[in-house]
Amino acid sequence: MGRIRLLMYVLCGLFYPFFLSAQRDAAHALMFGQGGSNQFDTYLSPMEYKGSQFTFLRETLRMTQRAKERLSFQSLTQGTFSMTENPAQNANEYGGHIGYNAGWHYNWMLRERLRLMAGGLLGADAGFLYNERNGNNPAQARLKADMALSLAGIYKFRLRRQVLALRYQADLPLMGCMFSPQYGQSYWEISQGNRDHNVCFTSPGNALSLRQLFTLDFPVRRFTIRTGYFSDIRQSHVNGIKMHDISRSFLIGFVRHFSIIQDKERKEELIL
C-alpha cells in the first residue's frame, strides 16, 4: 500500500504544473486507426487470439512558459476496440479500453529543425476482454494507472514549399498499479467482498509495456493531415496470470494549430 500511496503523491505533483501553466503554441490532433490485435490472457485461455482492432487517439501538445519556454505539455486520450479469434477459429474475444495520459517533456532544439523531448507521462486506463464461450470466467477487467518515461523527436523539413513534421515518440511505463484477480479467483468471489492481492504494483519487471507513435504531418490547403503508425504493447505477469495485449494500427487524422501570434512565417517554429 505504501508504494501505491507514493505513486499517488507523484501523480498529484506531476499534474500540479498543468493547472498553473499558461498556453502558448498548441497542436490538437484527432486520429483514427485500424490494424491488428493480439490478445492473450491465461485467466481466459492459454491460446493467443488474433484479429483486428480500431483505435482513436486525441492528442494535445503545447508549449508552456515554464523552464524558459522549454517545457511542453502533452495529453493523449486513447480508445481501442478489438475483435479477435482463437487459432482454431471457433471462438471469439472482444476487448476494449479507454485511457488518458498526460505529462511534461523538456525540449531541446537541435539544428533548428530537430526537437528532442524527454519527460514523463501519467496515465490511467480502464478496459475489458470478453471471451464469448467461457462460463464463470467470461471476462477480464482491465484497470491500471502508471507513470511512464517518454522520449520523442520531431523533425521538420520543407518539401515543395510546404512544412512537414516527422515525429517519433516512445513511452515506457516505469511504475504503477493494476487490478488483477488472483490466479484462480472468480469475479463472483470478488463481488462477495473477498479480496486477495487484487491491486498489484507494476514495473518493467512484471509489466513490461511500450507505446510507440510514429507520425507524419503535412498540410493540405488550410488543413494539416496526420498519418502514422501506432504500436501499443501491454504485458503483465501478476498473480500467476500472464497477459499481453498487442495492437498495431495505421492512423489517419488531422491537426489543428493554435498560436498566440498569427504569423505564417512562424509555422516552422510551432511545436508540430
Binding site: S45, M47, E48, L172, S236, I246
Partner: peptide
C-alpha cells in the same frame, strides 16, 4: 536513463513477450 530506454526498445524488438499458444494444432 536514455540508454536504459534504448536497451528496453532493443529488447522489445528482439526478445519474446508473454507468449501463449498461437497456432491451432490437432
Amino acid at each position: 536513463m536514455i540508454c536504459l530506454f534504448c536497451a528496453v526498445l532493443i529488447c522489445f524488438t528482439f526478445s519474446s513477450c508473454q507468449k501463449g499458444m498461437d497456432e491451432a494444432d490437432s
